[in-house]
């Protein structure tokens, strides 16, 4: 059997890769790609704790499904915002979208 630690370390590594993408990419769509990686890492943790805990308690899987729904909502709104910003300001570079910064 696979020990729980393997799943947790795998998820931590995937989360860190996603964090690097969010913090360092210039393109707003690439930042959203990094957020997807982080959400997937969280889902692996939720499923692993469901499997290695009490399998009769489905909270882990239910929470993972809620995360799926929130991720779909987040990516729809995020990409709509990026497309709207691109149409108005002709850029998707996150550093150039500084209208509300002072």
């Amino acid at each position: 059997m696979i020990p729980l630690s393997w799943f947790l370390i795998f998820a931590a590594a995937l989360f860190s890769i996603g964090l690097f993408g969010v913090l360092s990419r210039r393109n707003a769509i690439a930042i959203l790609l990094g957020i997807e990686l982080m959400l997937n890492a969280v889902n692996i943790n939720l499923a692993a704790f469901w499997r290695y805990g009490n399998v009769l308690n489905m909270a882990g899987q239910v929470f993972a499904i809620i995360v799926f729904a929130v991720a779909a909502a987040e990516v729809a709104v995020g990409l709509a915002l990026v497309i709207s910003v691109y149409r108005r300001r002709n850029t998707v570079i996150a550093d150039d979208i500084d209208l509300m910064k002072w």
Binding site: M1, I2, P3, L4, S5, R51, Y52, V55
Partner: peptide
């Protein structure tokens, strides 16, 4: 301590 736990 729960790290090396295996699935039942």
């Amino acid at each position: 301590e729960g790290m090396s736990k295996t699935a039942s």
